[in-house]
Computed example of a mutant assay.
Amino acid sequence: MKHKILPISIIYINQEMLNQRIDNFMHNRFKNVPKSMIYRIIRTGKIRINKKRIKPHYKLKIGDVLRIPPIKISYNLKNTFFPLNDAKNLLNSILYEDNHLLIINKPSGIAVHGGSGLNFGVIEYFRKLRPLDKCLELVHRIDRETSGILILAKKRSSLVSLHQQLREQKVKKEYIALVHGLWPIHLKKISEPLLKIRLQNKQKIVLINPKGKPSETCFQIKKKFSSSTLLSIIPKTGRTHQIRAHTFHAGHPILFDKRYGKNSLDANIKNNININRLLLHSYGIHFIHPKNGHNIYIKAPLHADFKDYLNNMI
């Protein structure tokens, strides 16, 4: 049995919460917490409304400010219906969390959501692991093979705010990729329209096509090796597989990309540590916090396999 202490929560009572008794409100919000514990923290004054003690029968009013103290909850990973190692890896991958957002450093190989033969993705894992979070939604997506930053919203209002920022291109994402060949110094931007098509084997692929959606990706060389280049990449638009399709179009596919890469090139690369993952990582993101309006920058360190591969090339 594992335990976690939830941080202090400050809740502003709105129309949806109006006239609920505080004890019933707490029971509904913390279903896995014993009722005796909830009544105890109300009775001892640890739960405050407008900085004052209240009784269990107090009915919530619009404008009330509810303060909930840290609460210890239990969860049992053995009772989940997904791989234990994946669950542990995701719990250890949290980069940032508050009452509005949950940001993780997603490992390569885990999809962001279930489907296409997968029972579980990141969002399903966290909904199982965080049953007290009533709203838990993906803010954006990254490919299953790609590692790095993934944002989950814990409130509907946060989801709406960040989606608006994405539409207005106020969110800035930064990636690192290792590509085949020596990237040309002059090639700093690719602006080619991308069209999503479905192949005969039902696999989706994105190709350069005049009928596609406008797409733009910026590139900066970080380091050149003998037969590959480490790039810093900033996608100005957020099309499916955009970085992978643009690097492939440039003749410099990302290493070990099974969809847009070249097996012949991958076979010729020294791979002493037997890595078998796409070498593309979402390492930084800038956005405006949906609640307090602060500028936020989150950075996700490279995972050990990617880092070891780079170190092995030196």
Rank of each mutant, 00 (worst) to 15 (best):
M1K: 14
I10S: 13
I11S: 09
L18C: 08
N24S: 14
N28S: 11
K31R: 14
K31A: 13
P34S: 05
M37A: 01
I38F: 02
Y39P: 03
Y39T: 04
G45C: 00
K46E: 13
K51P: 05
R53P: 00
K55Y: 08
I62F: 10
L66V: 15
R67T: 15
R67A: 04
I68T: 06
I68Y: 02
P70V: 04
I71A: 03
K72N: 10
I73Y: 04
T80C: 10
F81H: 13
F82Q: 05
P83D: 10
N92E: 14
D98N: 12
H100L: 09
G109K: 01
G114R: 03
L118M: 11
G121P: 04
Y125W: 07
R130L: 15
P131W: 02
P131E: 09
K134N: 05
K134T: 05
H140V: 09
R141C: 02
R141G: 03
G148V: 10
I149H: 03
I151C: 04
K155H: 12
S158H: 09
Q164K: 15
Q165Y: 02
R167G: 04
E168S: 12
I176A: 04
W183Y: 08
P184I: 04
E192N: 13
L194R: 11
N201R: 01
I205H: 07
C218Y: 15
F219D: 11
K222M: 15
K222Y: 07
K222A: 13
F225S: 09
S227M: 06
L230A: 03
L231Q: 10
T237A: 06
T240K: 14
I243W: 00
R244N: 06
A245R: 07
T247D: 01
F248N: 13
A250V: 06
I254H: 01
F256W: 15
G261I: 09
N263L: 12
N274V: 00
I275S: 12
I275E: 07
N276F: 00
R277N: 00
L278A: 06
I285V: 15
F287H: 02
I288N: 06
K291G: 00
N295W: 03
I296W: 01
A300Q: 08
L302I: 07
H303S: 00
Y309S: 11
L310G: 03
N311E: 14
N311D: 12
N312S: 15
